[in-house]
């Protein structure tokens, strides 16, 4: 183990110079061995700690983030007051979108109730300086005129600022809702619509951060309030060292 020059034992044999040479050889070999062991400790321990740290980050998720799913679409619509309403009007705000039509009746109860619940419970979230908006987009512009949208908005207490109802040209709506938000809808022969009841959460950059399509045991309102909490926490910690930690959390997929 000490190399060929040290293969002979330390028992006194041969001449004195030969014995001293063997002792010196043994001394340096042990020093080298000791240095190797030290090196292993110096590199190995931090390495193991780093791996444990990364695993702990991924398992215990000390920081949670919402995924940056894809860009939300740009749009030019008309709101319940007949005013132009564009995606740029809500840039910088967190927006919860839903998609419906005025004739959907009971089918929309769940969606509408979620919007109402989220608006009512917004006080549970520390929004800081970030504004929160609710937007209901109708994909039935032929029926949902400004008057119809106004009546709908009034029924839900949508003030036209915090909660807006909007619609637009049919072809543009298809691009916005179907291609952009990826929410399917189709007009039926009787004039009703088949559609996927969906809520979508978008951040101030116009990036989709949450999609709520399937009812689970936990209500959509609970999930959205929880996700708003996570999102606003990330916004508050966007700069400096905390910002780096949040970027790392995105890398390690610390998604709720």
């Amino acid at each position: 183990m000490f190399g060929s020059r040290c293969s002979i034992g330390l028992r006194f044999t041969g001449t004195m110079p030969e014995y001293i040479d063997r002792l010196r050889c043994r001394y340096w070999a042990e020093r080298r061995s000791l240095n190797s062991r030290k090196l292993i400790w110096w590199i190995g321990i931090p390495g193991v700690l780093l791996v444990i740290g990364v695993m702990a980050f991924a398992i215990f998720e000390p920081i949670q983030v919402l995924p940056r799913i894809r860009l939300s679409p740009g749009y030019l619509l008309e709101d319940q007051a007949g005013q132009s309403f564009t995606s740029e009007d809500v840039r910088g705000d967190i927006v919860l979108y839903t998609f419906r039509y005025s004739g959907c009746g009971d089918e929309c109860d769940g969606l509408d109730q979620t919007m109402i619940d989220v608006q009512r419970r917004l006080g549970e979230v520390d929004m800081g300086d970030t504004d929160f908006r609710l937007v209901t987009i109708s994909f039935d512009p032929a029926t949902d005129t400004t008057e119809v949208l106004t009546a709908e908005a009034d029924a839900f207490g949508a003030d036209g600022v915090e909660w807006r109802f909007a619609t637009g040209e049919e072809a543009h709506l298809a691009n916005v809702v179907k291609a952009g938000f990826k929410v399917w809808y189709e007009e039926q022969e009787d004039g009703s619509f088949s559609f996927d009841p969906t809520l979508i959460l978008v951040d101030g950059w116009g990036v989709i951060r949450g999609e709520y399509e399937y009812q689970t045991l936990k209500s959509d309102a609970d999930k959205i309030i929880h996700h708003l909490d996570i999102l606003t926490e990330e916004i508050r910690n966007a700069n400096g060292a905390a910002g780096l930690a949040y970027e790392a959390a995105h890398l390690f997929l610390c998604y709720p």
């Binding site: 860009l71 939300s72 679409p73 740009g74 749009y75 030019l76 132009s84 564009t86 995606s87 740029e88 072809a171 543009h172 691009n175 916005v176 291609a179 952009g180 116009g206």
Partner: peptide
């Protein structure tokens, strides 16, 4: 116009 509207929309771009 339709093709431009589709592409701009899905890339998050509004124009008027």
């Amino acid at each position: 116009a339709d093709a431009v509207d589709r592409i701009a929309t899905v890339y998050g771009v509004y124009y008027e």
